[in-house]
């Protein structure tokens, strides 16, 4: 099983939600991602666009401890990445 980082780019789906938190640093990157997920249904996909390099490791790692699934981490341009996460089916 390859790391999501090495996997193929996740093509956006029509019903995906995108959250742009470029300019945000930790821990607000995680807090804003959690707040966005809170308003979504289990199984929904959120695409988080961020530009704070430490968040690239921290956010996916923390989201996994919450039980969410990291589908992909894609480059979204110079110094920008998209973390694609599927909301946990398990109640919080």
């Amino acid at each position: 099983m390859g790391e999501p980082k090495d996997g193929p780019a996740q093509p956006p789906q029509a019903d995906d939600v995108t959250l742009n938190i470029c300019g945000e640093v930790c821990p607000y990157t995680l807090v804003r991602t959690l707040l966005a997920l809170e308003e979504m249904k289990p199984g929904d996909v959120l695409r988080v666009v961020l530009d704070y390099p430490p968040a690239l490791n921290n956010v996916p790692k923390s989201l996994r401890t919450y039980g969410h699934e990291i589908l992909a981490i894609d480059e979204a341009g110079p110094g920008r990445w998209t973390v694609v996460v599927r909301k946990s089916a398990r109640p919080q």
């Binding site: 821990p27 607000y28 959690l34 923390s62 919080q92």
Partner: peptide
């Protein structure tokens, strides 16, 4: 929004604790 900008910053350290969270 669930929390305003000020609340997001004020409560961030406890929101990121998984058992606690936004809920």
């Amino acid at each position: 929004p669930l929390l305003n900008e000020e609340e997001i910053r004020r409560y961030s350290r406890q929101i990121i604790v998984p058992e606690f969270g936004v809920a």
